[in-house]
Design a protein around this nucleic acid. Sequence first.
DNA 1: CGGTCCCGCCACGAG
DNA 2: CTCGTGGCGGGACCG
Length: 351
Amino acid sequence: MSSSPSRFLDSGSKHHSYCRKQKSLGVLCSNFVSLYDRDGVELVGLDYAARQLGVERRRIYDIVNVMESVGVLARKAKNKYSWIGFSGIPKALKELKEEALRAISGSDGPCEKEVLEDEDDDSEGQNHDDGDEKFSKLDNASSSGNHICKARSATDNRKEKSLGLLTRNFVKLFLTSDVDTISLDEAARLLLGDISDLSNMRSYNAAKVRRLYDIANVLSSMSLIEKIQVEARKPAFRWLGTEGKPKTDTVSKKPGKAQMRSDDLKECNLTAQKQLITKSGYVFGPFCPAGMTKMDGDVEGKGERSTQDWESLACSLRPQYHNQALNELFTHYMEAWKSWYSELAQGSYNL
DNA sequence: CGGTCCCGCCACGAG
DNA sequence: CTCGTGGCGGGACCG
């Protein structure tokens, strides 16, 4: 494998105009949704998604895991998920809530009466800084029927730290309490296995928080939560939940800002629907730059250098729409373009 | 400078 | 072994 050598070594040119924001999980999630949230779609291929969105596989796993936890997706098989859509959220949420309530009351020991309805009562003014126990415990109830907590084998020990589980517990936090706003570190504190020993928990906490950021980004891009700034520091997340309830939510109340469900996106995906397939079986994105026919056998070789130029050019010329929907739309095409060009430059879909 | 959080190494389990 | 997953945390980015 002599791939690493001079592949992308190139000169340490400035990758200026690199926008970290455009690479966030939130944006990626939005693109993911706009790519699949259309009628007719029901199968989600991880490879396909990764290619279309112009990101590496690893990132797809991130958003897919949290989306599955909320019922938007369902694991079908290796490399394949089935698209449920936003309509699947209410159901998943209800199940999560029941699961959470069951875990709380079902703890071993009848003398466990941790009321979940935190009564913030009416004591304004003085609040204990340690008043954490307001969301009760609700630790993940493993599938272990008994209280034999011996199965701490490294096997599922890995599982219980999964993004998916963290997501579910995070959501449960909102579902089991009447408060609709939770600060980040408050959530982090509650979601930790508050076992003991604070020493190694520091780093553990930090790691958890990082995951929490990931989850929050995805969740907020789906409008399930909203990030808000309460105090000067400490950001917090407000639960928006299922707007419109399981009822017929033809109209989206919630005068929220980023309500991008619009015809613009619909148009966008219609276009994305029709892709061209080359003889080699490769599926191209929504479009191809004019004057450039599909790639043939060769192409291989040069071209990778100019990729940077195109990207930086596009990034610097990026128009800033005030309209959220338009912005999303543009971003979508941008990604599609970059994905396509990148593929062309590398000229390899066939190792 | 500290809050965010992207990137991708590499462990783990299945085939 | 290869391959699909996805924990995990270094450190780049941003306000």
